[in-house]
Design a protein around this nucleic acid. Structure first.
Lengths: 202, 202
DNA sequence: ACCTGAACACCGTTCAAGT
DNA sequence: ACCTGAACACCGTTCAAGT
């Protein structure tokens, strides 16, 4: 047949992303399929490949938007002026965000590039932006003296919070966190910061 | 054709698990396929289904063995008598283990049951055993007063170490942990334990 | 009893052909 | 220019038929 132009290129792109996101939110990466997307938007499978290079490209686009949404969320007013409270606020915001779209968030860690292919540059850039945000929030707590120490502490906290949220949203290790994730994140941040003080690093 | 009996049922089972493990170690869960396993062991695809219910069953079996291997490893002689050092030793052993078979370890978190199906009971049991091991090691550090507090701290530490190792073995967020995982785990454990002391919880 | 291989219902991706 | 749909090379899983 050919040429329908019922939707503009832009609309078509959104339609595809929308359908893909719905599939992922339902059954995770396993529930995603090019043919199923095509079915849902009423186009043939081939059409997807006019818009995206392949499924990885499509998934990466969804991940990018998710990271942008998180960045926006974490950029909200910084609440209390107490530096330690601000770190806690950041962790809570992160946790809340991941719990709003658990399957979608899980996608970030469930999806891997085919071996050989590296993740695109803009992807790393977005992640770097998030790391920087954490470092900035942590820096006042530690005193700006040693940037490397702040960097390390930021990574430890990010990874730690990630571990808790990922175990709880993957729901596979649910018994490991039958304790809801909230109190665990709270405990991690508060205790880790207390440890920094105890070591004279804050 | 039918009936070959070149291998016993037991041998066949091992052959399948062996081939599957190799595929996973190469390309992760995405590299696993029933037909490819069959090709590699020189049997028809149907044969796999005489031995395992389906691919999930096979994967779960591989995960079980992995968890057993980890449990054995963590059961090794407890090194120094200093309680805090023993916690550190446990974390290091865990990290070392996950780095020996990164793709295989990643399988535990990459693989999800189809929605609806729960993970089998023995799976939870194995995980519980690991948690108990951590709690036992942590307990002397905290004083046995409050078991719930030990439980919580054990979960926070396990999840935290998991977060660090998973970000580093998934190699996707490599820049987040371009700092090698070792120092980060060290930092987490040492600082968290210092925090417990600072809060009068240890 | 054990194993095969055809069959069914799916995939991702490409591309000549149509409008 | 845009889209189709057949084609190719794959999947997981089942099960009648063979030895």
């Amino acid at each position: 047949m050919g040429r329908r132009s019922i939707h503009t290129a832009e609309e078509l792109r959104e339609l595809i992303l929308q359908a893909a996101t719905e599939l992922i939110e339902k059954d995770g990466l396993a529930g995603l399929s090019a043919r199923e997307i095509a079915r849902r938007i009423g186009y043939s499978p081939g059409t997807l490949y006019n818009v995206f290079e392949n499924l990885d490209d499509l998934v990466l686009t969804i991940e990018a938007r998710l990271l942008d949404r998180l960045a926006n969320r974490l950029g909200e007013p910084a609440s209390s002026g107490d530096p330690a409270q601000r770190v806690l606020h950041l962790a809570r915001s992160y946790l809340a965000f991941t719990h709003e779209n658990p399957k979608l968030w899980n996608l970030l860690f469930e999806h891997h590039m085919p071996s050989g292919k590296a993740v695109p540059g803009w992807y790393q850039t977005k992640l770097d932006g998030l790391m920087t945000r954490i470092e900035e929030t942590l820096s006042p707590v530690m005193g700006t003296s040693d940037p490397a120490a702040v960097k390390r502490a930021a990574r430890v906290l990010w990874a730690g919070v990630h571990g808790i949220t990922s175990l709880s949203t993957a729901d596979k290790l649910s018994n490991v966190t039958s304790d809801s994730a909230g109190p665990l994140v709270e405990d991690l941040v508060v205790t880790y910061l207390a440890g920094l003080r105890g070591q004279g690093r804050a």
